[in-house]
Design a protein around this nucleic acid. Sequence first.
DNA 1: CTCCAAAATTGACCATGGTCACTTTCATAA
DNA 2: TTATGAAAGTGACCATGGTCAATTTTGGAG
Lengths: 211, 211
Amino acid sequence: MTAVNIKFDQSHFFWHTSPMAVQTRTLKTRAKLIEAAQTRIKAAGYEALRVEDVVKDAGVAKGTFFAHFKDKDALMDHLIGGEIHAFLDEVELLEPPQSIEEILDALMPSFAFMTQERFVFDVILRHSGAAQNSEIGAIAQTFIRHGTVMAHWLANGPFRKDIDPALMADGVGAFQIQALALHFCEAHNGVSIRDRMETYLNAWLLPKPSG
Amino acid sequence: MTAVNIKFDQSHFFWHTSPMAVQTRTLKTRAKLIEAAQTRIKAAGYEALRVEDVVKDAGVAKGTFFAHFKDKDALMDHLIGGEIHAFLDEVELLEPPQSIEEILDALMPSFAFMTQERFVFDVILRHSGAAQNSEIGAIAQTFIRHGTVMAHWLANGPFRKDIDPALMADGVGAFQIQALALHFCEAHNGVSIRDRMETYLNAWLLPKPSG
DNA sequence: CTCCAAAATTGACCATGGTCACTTTCATAA
DNA sequence: TTATGAAAGTGACCATGGTCAATTTTGGAG
């Protein structure tokens, strides 16, 4: 394994074949790195994370870190993407919402996560445009998943029918980014993320006949 | 001047008063830094810019750079924001477009600029959410200006009338970011920025009565 | 003209992410 | 059991953005 960003489950495919593509040691080291990072983040937040601290806590050398993650950002992608995936797991259990209020109820928890730190939102932004190096990252995956769920919801609720649900979902994603971005903008305070998002979705999902 | 990011025209206000708030020397140094940066960028692009090179070319010490710009990103904001402002200067001369095609014609040049380098788009994204430190940056300003122009256009063209033009303009901005972001995503190739944007704007600005 | 306080500049120094030639460990073949 | 080549790990080293106490320059007051 050199300079390649391991997909964390690829070893399963080779577990009983030879030669073993990924050793148990690798998985253990990777787990140690991730756990060390998560512990640090729980204590001091994402922005304060230092690679040096992570490798020290994990008990490995610095070079080992970069054998497991292309760069620090790849670790962030993995960790933050993991959290968002967890929110989506919850969201996928829900019945298709029958109102914009219900959509917002479903979305707000992940909004809270994404805005906890400006740094986190920046990482998400950077990775939402996504598959930079032919390899699709965890955060980018969540956007795709989000689009799928949202399209399904929109196709099965009381929303506009004149355009493709996938397009509607795309738009929801765009407005979501916009609402979150404006949350960090002093010039646009006084309006909560939820209220702004509600305005957007009313206009996007329930357009009234123009006068 | 310490650690404060100079607004480049503030000196005019004090030019004939005393004590002189900003010395001529300051403006000259700043101009040297900016010109050195622009020359380097013209030769090798934005991503390859190094602060060390800029100060070397400008003939000043490294510390001087950071007396003029809070950080490297602030220089990027100034330079990239300046370019976008120039596009807006052109755009502001136009009559309000009377079709989505005309809107797209007006927007495409700045799209080309914003997608010339992934790095440039990332800088724009990072600063579009904007006024992080109570001081509004050049790029953030362009977004506000863009919104103003767009709202004026949309209010004076054959577009939907059921929502506030400012809200429509907000949406155009959101879709613009989305279209640009997807441009960098391998998974979404095959559709040009313009075509994607056209789809978005048709659905956003000209909603058809739902069936 | 001289002196002074504020403004501007300096460059050695630090923080931190990232590299790579070398060493160690592992799994298998003989 | 031992040899061997590939996988994994190491840590000194580098690249680069950013800091700050000390120094120089400036414009005006006396």
